[in-house]
Design a protein around this nucleic acid. Structure first.
Length: 283
DNA sequence: AGCAGGACCTGAAAGC
DNA sequence: TGCTTTCAGGTCCTGC
């Protein structure tokens, strides 16, 4: 499910509740997530205090006392739930709850229907963890450098859509925001990646437009609290609103929203995943 | 080396 | 109505 804006929204929803709380007990379901929990996970985090929550690309990082760090990835269907007050006692563990952290005055629950997500424990610098160390720069804060991208794009034959989904090149984007960014920058998703670079290795204008569109769409999506489709909701159960702003994603056969353009949005498959685009606006 | 496709899961919706 | 197929926000792994 969650791309950068959704994970950022989850982070914001959690930090007000869990920061400075001490983990008094931990409970796991018997089902495995994508990766098994690291050894003695439950024992090691007991009585540790959550000092801070951060996000790197689509990963959530919980910094604990004594230098432990929990790395969480939500996969396609992972969600965190907060339970507090009088709801604690009447909380019934539901089918896809996989980990429950107990605090003195609340619960933090990781629920994941498809179990593509995972929760790992590491120590000290999570950036050095192999899952995070190979991530490319992310939109917004971490400068997305056009010149550096041009260098990477040079000579790449695969489609631009697939390149943008590659977390090693740019991290944090997923299927929705790649489609939306390509629409905003008027670029065809099927273009060869190298077509955004001139022969001398310099970036073409389209590459500048693309980077601007990526930053813009991610910034707006964060502002609207991410996109709520199917199972995504905030930690407090509220919904994001950005799905109402989609220009192409999920709009197959509907009219292009660009004024004056009457073309129908097309859906194609690239590497087995749906790509939505306007055949008239995007070139 | 770079890339596409399969695999990993569950459940909702569409198709027949 | 009920069975089958397709689809979903991700990414690791395999093999070409």
């Amino acid at each position: 499910m969650p791309e950068l804006p959704e994970v950022e929204t989850v982070k914001k929803g959690l930090e007000g509740f869990v920061v400075n709380k001490t983990i008094k007990s931990v409970e796991f379901s018997d089902k495995k997530l994508r990766f098994p929990y690291s050894r003695k996970f439950g024992k090691k985090i007991l009585n540790k205090t959550i000092l801070n929550i951060d996000r790197r690309a689509k990963y959530l990082l919980f910094y604990l006392s004594e230098n432990y760090v929990i790395i969480a990835h939500l996969g396609m269907s992972g969600t965190f739930k907060i339970v507090k007050g009088r709801d604690i006692k009447k909380y019934k563990i539901s089918k896809h709850d996989h980990m429950i952290l107990y605090f003195d005055d609340g619960l933090l629950i990781y629920n994941d229907i498809r179990r593509f997500g995972y929760i790992l424990l590491t120590a000290n610098c999570p950036d050095k963890h192999h899952l995070l160390s190979s991530l490319g720069p992310e939109p917004l804060g971490n400068e997305l450098n056009v010149e550096a991208l041009a260098e990477i794009f040079k000579g790449r034959k695969r489609s631009l859509k697939n390149t943008l989904l590659d977390q090693k090149i740019i991290s944090g984007l997923g299927n929705i925001y790649v489609c939306e960014a390509l629409f905003r920058s008027k670029i065809l998703p099927t273009k060869f990646t190298s077509e955004l670079v001139k022969k001398n290795g310099m970036a073409k204008k389209k590459l500048y437009d693309l980077v601007e569109s990526i930053n813009e769409v991610i910034r707006e999506a964060i502002f609207f609290g991410g996109s709520s489709l199917k199972d995504f909701h905030h930690a407090d159960g509220k919904l994001g609103y950005f799905q109402n702003k989609f220009k192409v994603y999920g709009r197959e056969n509907e009219s292009c929203l660009q004024p004056e353009c009457k073309a129908k949005i097309k859906r194609i498959k690239q590497s087995n995943r749906s790509t939505f685009y306007c055949p008239k606006c995007q070139k």
